[in-house]
Design a protein around this nucleic acid. Structure first.
Lengths: 129, 129
DNA sequence: GTAGCATATCGATATCCATCGAAGGGAGTG
DNA sequence: CACTCCCTTCGATGGATATCGATATGCTAC
């Protein structure tokens, strides 16, 4: 029985993107410190108004990508600040950066969003109170 | 046509919990500053390892609720710190507090979790790149 | 009322982080 | 090469916040 469960887990680990399986569902089992830190890192990356607006602008761009050059004026922040937020989001795995000539272009990497959504899913036992 | 759309929105507003409709989907349209601040407030409330573990302990409790009295020892934080985190989560709308005698009991309020999940949903246009 | 426990609040501290100006690094242009 | 433009990195600063000890509040029991 234990072996069977282990095999299932191995299978899931091999067939799903590793970032999607970042953390177990928050409301299913008590998280240990390491799991909590991991999910916290993801949530902190999103928990900033400038970064949220930045992500929504990238996603809403007609081509699905956006040039960093237009962001300082659209967000009312200095170029240094925008660069800071962009590299933070790339490090967090929610954006990818591509250099083209002297411009840097960014687009959404959707896996981490799905990972957070899965981690925050409310199990039936909880939603029934 | 516009009227019809308006009526649908009114209907949704009346029939869903107001907190669930806190913010539009992040990756569907560019967020304005106010919408970004609102979603940020929710995400910040979750973006702390102690609070995440606290929430997972409440959800995993057999009765779906937990007494504040057992949390300082289980989380390795002072009583003052736990109290701070608990009141923050209540203010954020993810926990409800109920006083019973001298003990305070807490349980999960699932609406905000669903609100965040909806806000972070990845539209097909984005996930296809 | 008094004593004792559970919880909240206060005040202080240390750390984290968003922000910006300035300087540095690369890529294109002439 | 020199010059310009885009972007990153550095250093400094102000504000937010996690933490705790001490104190206050509130409830129960006697």
């Amino acid at each position: 029985m234990l072996l069977f469960h282990f095999d299932i887990c191995q299978y899931v680990l091999m067939t799903t993107p590793p970032l999607s399986a970042c953390c177990p569902a928050l409301l299913d089992h008590p998280l240990d410190e390491e799991q909590a830190e991991e999910l916290t890192r993801l949530l902190k990356a999103l928990a900033d108004p400038v970064r949220l607006r930045l992500l929504s602008m990238v996603a809403a761009a007609p081509t699905g990508e956006i040039c960093a050059c237009e962001l300082p004026s659209r967000l009312g922040r200095s170029q240094a600040t925008i660069s800071h937020h962009l590299s933070l989001l790339v490090r967090a795995g929610v954006l990818v950066r591509e250099q083209r000539g002297k411009w840097a272009w960014f687009r959404i990497l959707p896996e981490q969003f799905e990972a957070i959504r899965e981690a925050l899913a409310v199990p039936a036992a909880v939603s029934q109170g």
